[in-house]
């Protein structure tokens, strides 16, 4: 699952400098009369991880941090804040910026109400093992966005691109089935995966609908397959690969694999670059007459 070891000391100094800049910029932003708050990260009480932090004044801006533990995606908070009057500052790393871009495209937040600080991310680490998080090891996306400010040139992180196990595509059907049975057995249907996702902004989730009552909520395998398949499908072409779903899962279900598989297939079948990378040709909102047709004749 992991490739490298904790960020070396030299780079940590660099992160420290960036954090100082981040605080300065956030504090300056919060001086503005129309500023509501600045969303970034703070250390958790046990100092082992970070969590989102809504700084409301320049003094609180000093609690903001930037380091290799800043996993949470601050963009997730924006849709529910869209009715607030005033400017919201937000610090985004690459995957967050992609989410932000998708949110703006989907009318969930207006660019003009945001102050966006871009952070050139060099990869985050797992707080427990200190190894580079798998999604960061695979991250190869430019983070093209019209930032208000950045903490340095926003370049594509040049990290190792190496797939981590388990590789679902390489598994046999039986193995895949067993894998998901084991994973879904763990699932307690708590909905954290969907609620933490930047892309889940429907006013009423279809899993909560009473007519039609799509989900039985029975918690059996069928119900869980329905839940996870639909959740993943709803994010097809919109998932930015921030892996927040997997991080939020208290039971450690490998939800990231499901989303990743969809991203891979979209790339393979439709040369779809990934969500939030360009504004052209969103996966399921468009089509091409030249799309592959694996169906005709019944079999592939």
């Amino acid at each position: 699952m992991f490739h490298a070891i904790r960020t070396p000391g030299r780079m940590r100094d660099q992160l420290k400098d960036m954090q100082t800049r981040l605080r300065e910029i956030a504090a300056a932003f919060l001086e503005r009369p129309d500023a509501l708050f600045f969303i970034g990260w703070e250390m958790t009480p046990d100092e082992k991880e970070t969590r989102p932090f809504f700084a409301r004044n320049p003094r609180q801006a000093q609690r903001l941090v930037w380091n290799d533990l800043c996993h949470p995606n601050p963009a997730s908070y924006l849709p529910r804040l869209r009715d607030r009057e005033g400017m919201i500052g937000v610090a985004v790393k690459g995957c967050d910026a992609r989410a932000l871009r998708e949110l703006i495209r989907a009318n969930q937040i207006e660019r003009k109400n945001l102050f966006v600080l871009g952070i050139p991310c060099t990869g985050l680490v797992d707080p427990n093992t200190g190894a580079i998080a798998s999604r960061c090891a695979e991250c190869q996306y430019p983070v093209d966005f019209d930032y208000d400010e950045t903490l340095g040139p926003m370049e594509t992180p040049a990290l190792t691109v190496e797939r981590s196990a388990p590789d679902l595509d390489a598994m046999s059907l039986q193995q895949r089935r067993a894998f998901w049975k084991q994973e879904l057995d763990k699932c307690i249907r708590c909905d954290a995966c969907r609620k933490i996702c930047y892309g889940c902004y429907c006013p009423e989730c279809i899993f909560e609908m009473s007519d039609p009552k799509w989900a039985t909520n029975r918690g059996d395998l069928a119900d869980k397959i329905f839940y996870h398949a639909v959740r993943a499908y709803h994010l097809a072409g919109r998932c930015v690969g921030c892996d927040e779903c997997a991080r939020a899962c208290p039971m450690g279900v490998r939800l990231d694999l499901l989303n990743r598989s969809l991203r891979d297939h979209a790339k393979e079948m439709f040369s779809f670059d990934g969500a939030g990378i360009t504004d052209e040709k969103p996966l399921l909102r468009t089509f091409s007459t030249e799309d592959p047709d694996p169906f005709f004749g019944g079999d592939e």
């Binding site: 708050f37 969590r51 989102p52 932090f53 809504f54 997730s76 908070y77 708590c190 909905d191 954290a192 609620k195 933490i196 939020a248 208290p250």
Partner: peptide, 9 residues
């Protein structure tokens, strides 16, 4: 509530 995503875990 600002930070809470309402997941209910």
């Amino acid at each position: 509530s600002a930070r809470c995503i309402g997941c209910g875990i």
